Computed example of a mutant assay.
Amino acid sequence: MVVAVHRLQESAKLPSSSAYLGEEPNMSIILVADIGGTNGRFGLVNACTHGKGYNAEKQISLASGDYPTLADMIRDYVKQADVPMPKFACLAIAGPIQDGHVKVTNLNWEFSISKLRDELNMQALDVINDYSALAYAAPHLQANDKKTLYSKDANPYAPIGVMGPGTGFGAALLAPVSNGWKIIPTEGGHCSFAPTTDTEIAILQEMRKQHDHVSIEHLLSGQGLVSIYRSIAVIEGAEAEDLSPADVSARGMKHQDPLCEQALQSFCNILGSVAGDKALSWGAMGGIYLGGGIVPKIADYLPQTDFIKRYLNKGIMRGYVEDIPVHMVTNDKAALIGSAAWLVDTTQALQS
């Protein structure tokens, strides 16, 4: 069982901190971070001004692979930001969290939350799944933090679904409860891939040669785009080049390579189908939000694909999905917003 959130603290109360962000004294500073297999994004949030939004100051992105441990990465951020080590932190992590232990997907990092808290001399440390943080950010996103791909009026009292391709494929649900929102983490990226077209059936057959179980993540991720490209090359009897995900997407968007463009078209179409499937499965009448590092980079190309057509193509349930809007998260620091909102809201709940 994957646990979305783990809190370790010595006290539920946020203490006053020194005014090292140039604001008024007696404020509470939260270190927030979004730690993925490729990058770690950090920032500092003033919890006392959350009514004005959760935008983090002193934002810095660091390459995850440059550090042997997460503690080393956090220390380097604090050094570069030129601030004391905050006493409170909420970290969004790409990986499972269970019994106070974290394993970061796509990195050789495993750590105990309690030991990390003590090592950094923090008073409270929350760790949540990265897509849980992104989901919690959804209600707090401003107009310039997102772009609408399919416009409908969302039901403000209904669940919100968040998903997206990046290094892997993340997915989480945000459900309304009496006192706010509840995160429901999922491992939806590891559900079985369901092909819709003859080409996708052929891609599945080709990918089954490498995987006993072909998941959504095997196609909807950076490496998944490359796998689609290579599979199509085999299907077409062509020679695949040694291309990166960025190569495939760039060539496809510029119409420079038919195989790359076919791969990118398939990627976008499959993403549309998966988004529609999740909308149905989750009852996400509050909207579908697409996150991850890939979608914003291909946003201008999406209208040239069957993304929306495939999103709506749900047979007798088409009318149901037609009422669910789709947004793309354009703020790549959105998980920082969610992390800060989570820590503030849960701390307030503990104090009440």
Rank of each mutant, 00 (worst) to 15 (best):
I160D: 01
S227A: 15
S28M: 05
N129P: 00
I201W: 14
N155L: 05
I298E: 01
G180M: 04
L220S: 04
E261D: 07
A171I: 10
G168W: 12
P245F: 03
S352T: 09
T49L: 13
H101A: 13
I60V: 13
S112G: 05
S64M: 03
N106P: 05
Q98W: 12
I35M: 11
Y289L: 07
E236A: 00
L350G: 06
N26E: 15
Q210A: 13
D300Y: 11
T330Y: 05
A238S: 14
A138R: 00
V295N: 03
A71K: 12
V274M: 02
E322N: 12
A349I: 07
V177H: 12
Q80C: 06
L219P: 02
K333G: 03
N155H: 05
G276C: 04
A172L: 01
A334W: 03
A19L: 06
L62Q: 10
N55I: 11
S112I: 12
T105I: 13
I324L: 10
G51T: 12
N121G: 09
G287V: 05
I270T: 13
I184K: 00
M85Y: 10
V344H: 07
D277S: 14
E24N: 12
G95L: 01
V321P: 06
A238G: 02
Q265M: 12
T105P: 00
N106T: 15
I30F: 14
W342C: 08
E236D: 09
H101E: 15
M85S: 10
G188K: 04
C48H: 14
L174H: 02
L125A: 04
I74G: 08
P139A: 04
R318Y: 10
Q98C: 09
R230I: 00
I35F: 09
G276P: 06
I294G: 02
P185W: 01
G164A: 02
D66E: 13
D118F: 02
I270E: 07
H140R: 11
N46L: 05
G40D: 03
G286L: 02
A81E: 09
S18F: 14
G287T: 04
E24W: 01
H213S: 14
G161R: 08
T330V: 10
I324C: 11
L91Y: 05
L8I: 13
T186W: 05
H211T: 02
F193P: 00
G338D: 00
Y77V: 08
A250V: 10
C90V: 07
W282R: 00
K79I: 01
V177M: 11
S11R: 15
H140Q: 10
D198K: 06
L350S: 15
L21V: 11
T38S: 06
H140A: 08
H211Y: 14
E119C: 08
A63C: 12
G276S: 07
Y20G: 04
G180P: 01
